[in-house]
Write a protein that binds this DNA or RNA. Structure first.
Lengths: 331, 331
DNA sequence: TTGTATGCGTTATCAA
DNA sequence: TTGATAACGCATACAA
C-alpha cells in the first residue's frame, strides 16, 4: 500500500549512495553519465517520487508559488477567473504548483501561514487585493513577489500589467471619433492605480482633440456592476451621447440602464468598456472594449516571479498592450 | 531580515523543551495550562510561524488539498471558475490551502508530483477531468480524494454533485408544460455520467406526460459552445419548438443560431439550459436553466474530503438539488 | 567522481 | 507533566 519508495531505496537498488542518487535525479553535475542513467532507470522502475516536503525542507525552495486574489464576489469572476486559469497554466509550464488564495480580503490564519512559511517560494498578487492590511504585510515580508496591475506605486515591487493610459485614450477616442460629443464615464476606485490611469486616459483623449470634459459626466464607481448601475441613473440624466465604463461590468450596467430608459444603442448612446469580456461572447450586448492580454500578463508575471525567486532585484513595471475590440455598442 | 524564528527559539525563550513547546502550540494534551499559555505568549511575541514543510514532513499531514480541473478552455470558465472560487473559500474556512491544477489534460510532470507526493493530503477532482489516464492514476493512488460530479460510477469514490436526473426532467417539463410539442436537445458527451443523466431527464419528462421523443431532435454534443452551435443547424432544420441544452453554453449557442435564422424566442422557439450561468446576469438572453448550487457543492466536497482524510471509508454519493431559474427564453 | 555526515524544523516516541 | 532523542526524506558541504 503506502510503501513510499524513498531516495534511500533507489540508492540501494542502484548500488550507489544517497548523495549520488540525489545528484543523478536532479541532473546535477559531478556524476558519471552511465551512473546517472542507471540511477534514473532504477528510480523509474521503482516508481520513485521525491517527497516534496522533504525536498522543500532540505533544499529551501519549494516549486510552489502562491496566487493571491481579492475575490470581490461573483461580478469579478470574469476577470479573476481568467487570471487564475492563465497563471495556473503558466506556472504548470514551469513545473510550478499554484497555491490559490481567493479571499485575500479575509484569509484564515492557517492559510496566511501557508503562504509565508516555507511551502511557497514566491507569490503573485493581483492588485485587486492590494490595499489590504494582510497583503501589505505579505509584500513587506521577504518573500519574492510580483504584482499584477499595481503600476509604478510607492512599493518597489516587480509589476506586470496591462497598459491603461493610452489604451483608455484609444477607446475613448473611438467614441469621440465616431461622433460622440458628450462622453461620460464611470470610473473605478480612483485610489487604485489602474482606475486612475484609465480615468486619465479618458481625459487625455479629450485633450488631444481639444475637447472639454464636462465634469458632471464623471462618476466615480468601484468596478462593481451594481454600483455602476446605480450611478448610471444620474449619469444618464445628464444626457450623454457616449459612456466609457472603466471596466466591462460598469459599461454593461450603463448599457442596461440605458436600454431600460428606452435609449437606442449605439444610435443615441455609445458605450465602451475595458477588459474585453465580450470579445468572444455569444451574448448581447458585445461591448466595445480593450481586450486584456491575460495570457501574456499571466506568463509575464510568472516569468518575472521566477526571476525574482532566482535573485533578481529588478523592480520594473512591465506594460502589455491590449487590443481594441469593436463590439456593437459603438458606431 | 530573514531571521526565521524557529520552534527551538520559542522553546528556549520560554524555558521549556522543544517537545513541550510543540505540544503547547498544537493544543495537545499533556501540558500544564500555565505553561501552555506562556509558550503561546512567547511564540506570538517572537512572531513565530511554524515551517509548513517541516511540519508536513514530520507529521505526515499537510493542511493543503488539491483541486484538479480539466480546463477545457475559455468556454468552461463560467462553470469551472465558480467551482474554483467556491472550493478555495471552503478550503480556506477550514484552514486548508488549495493547490490548483487547472490543466488536468496534460499537467507537467513536476505538477503531478506535487499532488501525489506529500505536499497535498487530499484532492478534489472535478469530473471534467475524469476520463484521463493521469487522473485515473491519481484516484487509484492511496491519496484521499473526492469527486465533484462523477456520479455513482464504478470507482468507489466519495462524490458530491448536483442532482441531474430530476432537475433536467423539471426544466424540460417546463418546456412541455408551456406548450412545446417538439422539444429537441443537444446533450453533453453521453459517456459522461452527468450528461447521460441529463439526457435521461429529458426523456423522463416526456414519458411522464406520455409524449414520444422524436429522436431526430436529439444531438450529442460535448458541452462546448462552438460544437453546439454547429449542431444547432441540423437541429433547427427539424423545426423544434423547444430546445434543452445540456448546459447553458449549449443552450446559448442554439439561441444564437435561432436568432440568426430570424426565429423569435420564446414565441416560436423556447430554449432552456442547465447551470444557471445567466441567473444573475445583465446580459441577454437570460436563459431559463437549473441553477447549480455551487457553494453547497464546494462546501460539500471539501467537507467530505476532510472526512475522508480523517479516515472515513464512506464512498457515498451526495446529490444537491438545484433551483430552476425562469429566464426570458421560455414562456 | 563518489561517499560520509550533517542539517532542515517539526512531530512523535520513549523514558524520566 | 516534561525532556531527551529519534525519525521524516532529502540536499549539500566536505572529505575521500
Amino acid at each position: 500500500m503506502g510503501k513510499h519508495v524513498t531516495l534511500d531505496d533507489v540508492a540501494r537498488a542502484a548500488g550507489v549512495s544517497r548523495a549520488t542518487a540525489s545528484r543523478s535525479l536532479n541532473n546535477r553535475i559531478g556524476v558519471r553519465e552511465d551512473v546517472r542513467r542507471n540511477v534514473q532507470k532504477v528510480a523509474k522502475s521503482l516508481g520513485y517520487r521525491p517527497n516534496q516536503a522533504a525536498r522543500t525542507l532540505a533544499g529551501g525552495s519549494s516549486s510552489v508559488i502562491g496566487l493571491v486574489l481579492g475575490s470581490a464576489g461573483p461580478r469579478s469572476y470574469s476577470y479573476e477567473a481568467v487570471i487564475v486559469q492563465e497563471v495556473a497554466k503558466a506556472a504548470s509550464e514551469s513545473d510550478l504548483g499554484l497555491l490559490l488564495v481567493a479571499d485575500a480580503l479575509a484569509p484564515s490564519q492557517g492559510v496566511r501561514n501557508l503562504l509565508s512559511d516555507g511551502l511557497v517560494s514566491g507569490v503573485v498578487v493581483s492588485v485587486v487585493a492590494t490595499r489590504n492590511q494582510w497583503v501589505n504585510e505579505l509584500l513587506a515580508a521577504d518573500i519574492p513577489s510580483v504584482l499584477i496591475g499595481q503600476g509604478e506605486s510607492e512599493s518597489p515591487i516587480r509589476t506586470v500589467e496591462v497598459e491603461n493610459l493610452e489604451s483608455s485614450a484609444e477607446v475613448v477616442g473611438h467614441l469621440l471619433d465616431t461622433g460622440c460629443r458628450r462622453v461620460g464615464t464611470i470610473t473605478g476606485p480612483l485610489n487604485r492605480y489602474d482606475a486612475a490611469m484609465r480615468y486619465r486616459g479618458y481625459r487625455l483623449a479629450h485633450e488631444r482633440r481639444s475637447l472639454e470634459v464636462d465634469d458632471s459626466l464623471v462618476f466615480e464607481g468601484d468596478f462593481d456592476r451594481d454600483r455602476a448601475y446605480e450611478l448610471a441613473a444620474p449619469l444618464l440624466d445628464q444626457n450623454p451621447d457616449g459612456v466609457f465604463g472603466a471596466n466591462d461590468q460598469s459599461a454593461l450596467a450603463v448599457y442596461r440602464r440605458a436600454i431600460e430608459r428606452g435609449l437606442v444603442v449605439p444610435d443615441q448612446l455609445s458605450v465602451a468598456g475595458f477588459d474585453g469580456s465580450f470579445a468572444d461572447a455569444y451574448v448581447s450586448p458585445r461591448i466595445t472594449s480593450m481586450v486584456q492580454p491575460f495570457r501574456e500578463i499571466a506568463r509575464g508575471a510568472v516569468g518575472a516571479l521566477i526571476e525574482v525567486m532566482g535573485g533578481s532585484n529588478d523592480v520594473s513595471s512591465q506594460y502589455i498592450d491590449p487590443d481594441i475590440f469593436f463590439g456593437d455598442t459603438t458606431r
